[in-house]
């Protein structure tokens, strides 16, 4: 791999560069190739030990008509980063459901580059982040539509919930479009739990922590709905959420 990244590298702007330096140089990215018409699902829970750092880079190549569905839960370690570099060929489909759960001094990042190289491919990315204390959660999502990749249909949605005013969310959807007949939707929103809803739940007897946990559970639950590994993912997320609202 190349030289150690700096703050000026857009993709590393919010990274914990000290942690990155310790992991440098990185191993070559994992290669994932789906053949024509192939369908696959996969999930990854980045549950690095407290204080440790981890960077995962995965290059995904989807041949004509291939379908790939990826569920990602980033919640462990002092620094955690998952980079996905996805290339879609004719009519391929990529689906990402990702959740970032941070507390303490964690810095957790998801960086995606989705390239629609050929026509008629679809991609859908849903990312939800819940950030407590002094944690930082980042989603940098780039969608590139190549010349001639007509009828591309791509969507990105990022929403973050800040539990404490000291937490930070960064979101940067980026579009690079060289075709004219494409649909690219993207949205980013950063908010806080609704105070009136919390009071309503507490007025019925829920502790403040349980009221928050219920609302946060609702906020992230949809992301993993119907996934093959749904139970594992929901259980891991729930456990971390429980720790975060204590």
């Amino acid at each position: 791999m190349s030289a150690l990244p700096t703050r000026r590298d857009e993709a590393w702007r919010y990274a914990d560069l000290q942690a990155v330096a310790k992991l440098w140089p990185l191993a070559a990215p994992e290669q994932l190739v789906l053949a024509e018409g192939e369908a696959a699902t996969r999930h990854l829970v980045l549950d690095t030990d407290a204080g440790a750092a981890d960077i995962r880079q995965i290059t995904i190549n989807l041949a004509k008509g291939a379908k790939f569905s990826f569920q990602l839960l980033v919640m462990g370690g002092h620094y955690g980063r998952v980079e996905l570099d996805v290339t879609l060929h004719e009519g391929a489909d990529f689906d990402l459901g990702a959740v970032i759960l941070g507390n303490g001094d964690q810095t957790l990042e998801i960086i995606t580059t989705v390239t629609h190289a050929e026509p008629n491919a679809t991609s859908n990315q849903v990312i939800r982040a819940v950030l407590a204390e002094r944690s930082t959660g980042t989603y940098l999502g780039k969608v590139a539509v190549a010349r001639g990749a007509q009828k591309t249909d791509s969507a990105q949605s990022f929403k973050a919930m800040l539990i404490d005013r000291t937490a930070t969310a960064n979101a940067k959807p980026e579009l690079e479009i060289f075709a004219d007949d494409v649909k690219c939707a993207h949205g980013a929103a950063i908010g806080e739990l609704d105070a009136m809803s919390l009071f309503y739940l507490e007025s019925r007897g829920l502790t403040p922590a349980d009221a928050k946990r219920l609302m946060l559970q609702a906020f992230v639950a949809g992301v993993f709905d119907g996934a093959a590994a749904e139970d594992v993912l929901q259980a891991a997320a729930l456990q971390k959420l429980g720790e975060m609202v204590r």
Binding site: M196, Y200, L201, S203, R204, L206, L214, M215, A218, A221
Partner: peptide
């Protein structure tokens, strides 16, 4: 409440059971 609050994603019975047992 004069204006009962809408809470998307949180089931009525689930929250009431938790609330009752917390009480």
């Amino acid at each position: 409440f004069q204006y009962p609050v809408e809470i998307p994603g949180v089931s009525n019975v689930q929250f009431l059971r938790e609330a009752l047992n917390a009480q």
